[in-house]
Write a protein that binds this DNA or RNA. Sequence first.
DNA 1: TAGCTAACGTACTGGTTCGTACATTAGAGC
DNA 2: GCTCTAATGTACGAACCAGTACGTTAGCTA
Lengths: 221, 221
Amino acid sequence: MTSVEEPARPRGRIRDAARTRAEILDVATREFARAGYDGARVDEIAARTRTTKRMIYYYFGGKQQLFTAVLERAYGVIRDAEQQLDVDHLDPVAAIRRLAELTFDHHEQHPDFIRLVSIENIHEAEHIAASGKLTAIGSPALDVIRRILAAGQESGLFTADVDAVDLHAMISSFCFFRVANRHTFGALFGRDLTDPARREHYRAMLGDMVIAYLTADRAED
Amino acid sequence: MTSVEEPARPRGRIRDAARTRAEILDVATREFARAGYDGARVDEIAARTRTTKRMIYYYFGGKQQLFTAVLERAYGVIRDAEQQLDVDHLDPVAAIRRLAELTFDHHEQHPDFIRLVSIENIHEAEHIAASGKLTAIGSPALDVIRRILAAGQESGLFTADVDAVDLHAMISSFCFFRVANRHTFGALFGRDLTDPARREHYRAMLGDMVIAYLTADRAED
DNA sequence: TAGCTAACGTACTGGTTCGTACATTAGAGC
DNA sequence: GCTCTAATGTACGAACCAGTACGTTAGCTA
């Protein structure tokens, strides 16, 4: 997530609409991710910026719209990262594993995003629905999966009849759960899923799982 | 002494501590699952019971402890259900598939529980930590997985070196994500993961995935 | 049946929190 | 330099909300 760094502040008010707006978004992202929508405090967000609460209402209109703007930017960051995906030079098996690993890495590196998604699901995606920018935008990762799947299925390496959206859900499930539910899972089973010492283990496990699923002889029963 | 008219009291107030407590827990479960911890309103919970807010504080002490009690009961229900698991008469492959399917069914049938878990993770499992009843209790499902894995590995059907906790995480990931993130996933990809028409499809997909993972020849690379 | 207490109800409070009315000023354009 | 407005700051209000002080009663037990 882009962050707004300020150089040593000269005395006197500096007017910079874009910077003020971006700074509010940065702080709001952290606050909403920390405490959830209802737990987040508009006053707290304001206090952590160099501006005042008044500006939040000036630029965003209200708490709801601020959260929507936070989601829009957070999804935008993911989208941009996915656009950098480059696995087309690999064979289908290696390409899928690489894609899964990059998804894994991305989830691990953006726990705040994971929290925002969890929070938005508690609210039944009402802010996404209200956004207009975010409905049914698809994702670049999905296009990549489609291409790899098509290649793998055509060459006979992959079992036919696997859908790209479903495979994306499968990969995301594992990556998301590991980060999102690490606290309850850790408390209940005494295992920290995000322990750096086990990072490679889970990263490999995800790749093995996806490849095994795609290349298995589906037994008829 | 009393010069004002007594308002007509509802006749036949029945005192039943256990019932009152249970009713508060029921309503609180729904309210917390609906709105999250901070979004939930103690007044709202009280209004939906036949008793008053005073009783919530009388029996539970406060909002925090009430939420903890809600979690304790919710996890208790899961635990009880897992205790009913009976797959020992099946061969390892069938047993694991059956276990995965039962996990799948259970997640689908208890969306409120899924929401509570999401909410508790936003709060970094602080209520579980405060509970005492819930820390490191393990789960009956885990014992079942351990037995099946041992049998499958000994007979050579399953790849060695798969850990029971990890496998539990893998199965839970898929089931949890499908229910917990259905709103954002649906909004972004236009696919309802909990559409009844696709239920069997995802149920089979989970089983296929787990079996493929457990029975794959792990390629050395 | 008197007395005791667990169980319950009413009414309120103090702090919090989203939002806004109103005042002010930096700096672009002329 | 003057003007105009986008950008900003201050102070406050009204609603909300967790929690409580205090009073009442059902129903058990001696």
